[in-house]
Amino acid sequence: MARIFITGSTQGLGLAAARTLIAQGHDVVVHARTAQRAGDLGEIAGEAAGVVVGDLAVRAETIALADEVNELGRMDAVIHNAGVYTESRRVATPEGHARVLAVNVLAPYLLTAKLQRPSRLVFLTSGMHRSGTASLDDVDWLTRRWEAYQAYSDSKLLVSALAFALARRWPEVASNAVDPGWVPTRMGGPNAPDDLEQGHLTQAWLAAGEDDDARTSGGYWYHQRRREPAAPVRDEAFQDAVVAKLAELTRVDLPN
């Protein structure tokens, strides 16, 4: 059985993945942004191998979260599920970063750099990454006019490139990006047309599946099938530039 850490697992896709993996007999560490959210976990809190709390928009809390998970022991897999969409640029982190960038990109990078290295990494992306701008100028939206759709799309392009960069840099780790589809979660809204059940199964499968496909690396997945991502995701120069920018913004280097 695997030990798996899932960020943003108090609701939606993260909670569904946690329930599936726990039902399969895996040890799952769940994450809540606040103690109040942790209190809403219900029966999952008692079934999980651990519950950790921390706001992924805050650098200090993210690093403390990594330390807390490390104290529980090395994880076999980490699912970077947490994400935000509609947060205004005005809702910034203490460091001044746009919250969308902080939660969707900086936190997965920081946790990956600080956690004991797992065997598998799963990064939640979106089909909207295809609308992302392959530029690292003003990633914090300090000079651009705020556009929520574009900021979210940019963040998903960056985290997809990060997943592919890690697959190349760490060949011993299976690192993949997952597009869950437009599913009816709190983020996706009640009218989202995709299948919530299918939306969470791919990340659970990539985290703990035993078949050959689940053990592969450097893939962009949708409903357990590989799809071709936007061209910048496969561009090694862009991948390296993304890693360098994230190291600059977080002041933490990615280990070799």
Rank of each mutant, 00 (worst) to 15 (best):
V30H: 00
G181F: 03
G83D: 11
V159D: 07
A237S: 14
R215H: 11
V243F: 06
A60I: 01
T185G: 13
A77W: 00
W182K: 11
L157Y: 07
L15D: 07
A163G: 14
V122H: 05
A35I: 04
L115Y: 09
P229R: 10
A174S: 15
R117C: 01
A64K: 13
I6T: 06
D212G: 07
S155E: 09
E228Y: 12
R89K: 09
V139P: 06
S155N: 01
L136M: 11
A177I: 02
P171C: 05
V30Y: 00
A148E: 12
K156R: 11
L166N: 01
D40Y: 13
R169D: 07
A230H: 08
D138W: 03
G39A: 06
D235K: 05
L110D: 08
H80W: 04
E172G: 00
G189T: 08
T112A: 12
D55F: 08
L142N: 14
H223T: 12
F238I: 05
T62N: 09
A38E: 05
R117I: 00
A64N: 13
Y109K: 02
V53M: 07
S153N: 12
E68A: 15
H200D: 03
L166F: 00
S135L: 10
S153G: 10
V51K: 00
R144Y: 00
H97V: 06
A60W: 01
A230L: 04
L166W: 02
L136D: 06
R37N: 15
Y85H: 13
W221S: 04
T10Q: 04
R99S: 15
V233S: 05
F123S: 03
V159K: 07
P118E: 05
P255L: 10
A16G: 15
H80M: 11
D27I: 09
D138P: 02
D253G: 13
A230N: 02
P229E: 12
A207L: 06
R3C: 12
A17S: 15
T10F: 04
L111N: 07
P232E: 08
P229T: 10
V28T: 02
V183T: 13
Y85M: 14
S217W: 00
T133M: 14
E248P: 10
A237D: 15
V105P: 00
S155G: 09
A17K: 08
E210F: 07
W205Y: 14
L196P: 10
L162V: 04
P180W: 03
L65P: 06
N191M: 14
L111Y: 02
G209T: 09
G96E: 03
L65T: 10
A165K: 11
Q150D: 07
L110F: 05
R226M: 10
A57L: 07
I63A: 14
N176K: 13
V69Q: 00
A177R: 06
L13T: 10
G199V: 08
A241R: 13
R59C: 04
W221D: 06
